[in-house]
Amino acid sequence: MVIWDHIGMWVAAVLTIAIFSLLYRDNPFYRAAEHLLVGVSAGYYVINYFYASVIRKFAVPVFQQGDLWLLPGGILGLLILLRLSRRTQWVSRYAIAFYVAAWSGYLIPSVIQERILIQLQGTIPPQPGTVPWDAFLGAIIVLIGVISILIYFYFSAPHTGVLGRISQVGITFLMIGFGASFGYTVMGRVSLLIGRFQFLFQELPESLMNM
């Protein structure tokens, strides 16, 4: 480990503690670290954005490989920058319209196929006897759940009578789903804390031993 890595470990430790200090109360050390994070991240990102989009996706193909078909991409990119002036702001609408419409165009068939049709297909239970009984029962539960949730989200008729009772079943499924999400959210957040503690209590002392 070179000296700069050791210094880096200690810088990281100090900054980690500065961020953790928010748990006690808001304080200048936390604020300073927070603002440093914003500045450094923005600097890191802008270099990556610039290299990836302007150099690699525009300058290299157009000027080094002579692919003029990529020229309009650069022009549309320049139009976006016209947002910075109030007088020319409207021109950037072309670039925004291009971006959003292109996204919409390729999204429609993909979403219909992958998020709607295949998911609906997966909701149809298999024929009884072709799968173990518990899997079949599970498939029936999934079918009931999906139908009742879709009815719960159907707002064109009042949720009374049969519709109301079915949508109540939908809410029940949603609550179990939210509960599962909650359990996993706790798991995720705790894992992130474990990562920082592994750094403070395991990696940092190791770095000290190797100095």
């Binding site: 959003v100 419409a101 996204w103 919409s104 165009g105 999204l107 429609i108 979403v111 219909i112 998020r115 709607i116 998911q119 609906l120 997966g122 909701t123 599970g138 539960i141 999934v142 079918l143 009931i144 759940g145 999906v146 009742s148 949730i149 879709l150 719960y152 989200f153 939908g170 499924f173 949603l174 179990i176 789903g177 939210f178 509960g179 599962a180």
Partner: peptide, 30 residues
């Protein structure tokens, strides 16, 4: 069991709803 069945049903119900919403919005944009 919860994750495989009731949770899958809940997430799929929401997913299909969101998928329909995304498609409708995309058509409106175009």
């Amino acid at each position: 069991w919860i994750l495989d069945f009731p949770n899958t049903a809940a997430k799929r119900g929401v997913m299909i709803g969101v998928g329909l919403g995304m498609t409708a919005t995309a058509i409106k944009i175009i």
